[in-house]
Amino acid sequence: MKRQDPLLLRCGLTAAALLFLAVFVALPLFAVFAQALEKGLAAYWTAIADPDALASIRLTLLAAGIAVPMNLVFGLAAAWAIAKFQFPGKNLLITLIDLPFAVSPVISGLIYVLMFGAQGWLGPWLSDRGIKIIFAVPGIVLATIFVTFPFVARELIPLMQAQGTEEEEAALVLGASGRQLFWRVTLPNIKWSLLYGVILCSARAMGEFGAVSVVSGHIRGETNTMPLHVEILYNEYNFAGAFAVASLLALLALVTLVAKRLLERKMRQDYADFKAAESAEG
């Protein structure tokens, strides 16, 4: 029988916690939507339908549309190698995969400028061939890939490690080929965590600011993603416009939170089923 803290204490602590969250977390979220709709619904739609805004949305979707599938394939490959096999250097590999998390967004952009920028390693080589990476779309895509690099792998690796290799072995003894093994046995077992990893990856890809800001060149209508467009509008004191676009990103964040809530139970099941199989029962 868990001891209950006294009522006064409970109310006090709960109130304090809720107040803190209300001021620091809920209020900013609310402010986004309030400011977006301040000048009315018409102004809201105008801001979003503005050609530069639409271009920024398109570019955001493009960057995410390339970065996420690539990191998805990488996440699957890395998780397969790490979780189902034994080899030296495995822990090192896992740590290296986490590196992008530890790097500040601005530096994430900087490194690509150093490689592909005008003064960079490959700068002269690229400009000779008329290929623009920095201050153009390819640079944005690269920076986006970098900052969302670990998301899928981080969801899959612990799960696949916990699931072990027995089902795959069983499938192989029954005669399955490598492809059948992957599609019919492995993939269904990880589908929820995979989905969640993709959602996290996409949300971060669309919301990235610092890294993309460095490589972008801020050319309106061409090399601005949604976050960058928000910055431009805000710096021009077009608050309603800035918050209108920002509200779309905030909605995206809310979708991510809802998805997490919905998938959490299913994801935990993927771990739990495995443990349940081990307990002796009649």
Binding site: A203, G207, E231, L249
Partner: peptide, 10 residues
């Protein structure tokens, strides 16, 4: 989950 620029202006 919230993009940093959105948090920033908010």
């Amino acid at each position: 989950a919230l993009p940093t620029a959105v948090a920033g202006i908010a």
